[in-house]
């Protein structure tokens, strides 16, 4: 049996990769921008293993114009995969015509042709000078592509969270991510094979 589509305007993003890549931080900044600054309803959750560094890590943000009942993602509108394992594990959670964004510096095998590939880590390392800010480059890209956040507010939220003295670097990373996203022709991406009306 199929569930009739609800009317609420729900948008789901998952940030995934490994512990230490700053995915939870990126999700928190995003949620703060959408919730505190844009004034929308937002839920941010995460799951992680026992490792402080290196284990599987994922963080989710659900955005809506109405109160959010289920706080976790159900069908992803956008998946960010910052390594191959995350890409493989979560690709099937993306809804038809959802977006898959991968860090092409770390993901080699693409599960679909409907994919956006940007070398976040390489950009962070070579252009910004710190590999650590790859998450913020990705955040910029996602902020632009999802179209659900005011980019000025995204930067405000970012600057409020990052350590003193690193504002300029983080801000530059975010802008680079936005620039990369601007180059993408989302409409020109191949359509998903599965239609939204297919059975569950």
């Amino acid at each position: 049996m199929k569930i009739q589509k609800e009317k609420q305007n729900r948008y789901e993003i998952r940030f995934s990769g490994s512990g230490g890549q700053g995915l939870i931080t990126a999700a928190v900044v995003f949620a703060e921008a959408v919730g505190v600054y844009d004034g929308k309803y937002v839920c941010q959750t995460q799951s992680y293993g026992p490792e402080a560094r290196g284990g599987k890590s994922k963080a989710e943000v659900v955005i809506s114009d109405q109160p959010i009942d289920y706080p976790k993602a159900l069908e992803l509108d956008l998946l960010l995969a910052m390594n191959q394992a995350a890409c493989d594990a979560y690709f099937f959670d993306i809804k038809a015509n959802g977006l898959l964004v991968v860090d092409s510096s770390l993901v080699e095998q693409y599960p679909t042709s409907r994919i956006i590939t940007i070398p976040f880590t390489q950009i962070a390392k070579e252009e910004i000078g710190r590999e650590l800010v790859a998450n913020m480059v990705a955040l910029g890209t996602i902020g632009f592509l999802c179209g659900r956040v005011d980019l000025a507010n995204l930067e405000k939220a970012l600057l409020a969270r990052v350590p003193k003295g690193t504002e300029e670097m983080n801000s530059r990373a975010l802008q680079r991510g936005i620039e990369e996203a601007q180059k993408i022709d989302v409409q020109g991406l191949p359509r998903a094979v599965m239609s939204e009306d297919d059975d569950l």
Binding site: Q46, P71, K72
Partner: peptide, 9 residues
């Protein structure tokens, strides 16, 4: 764990 670690506005 869900309630504890979910962030909401």
């Amino acid at each position: 764990e869900v309630v504890a670690h979910t962030r909401e506005c």
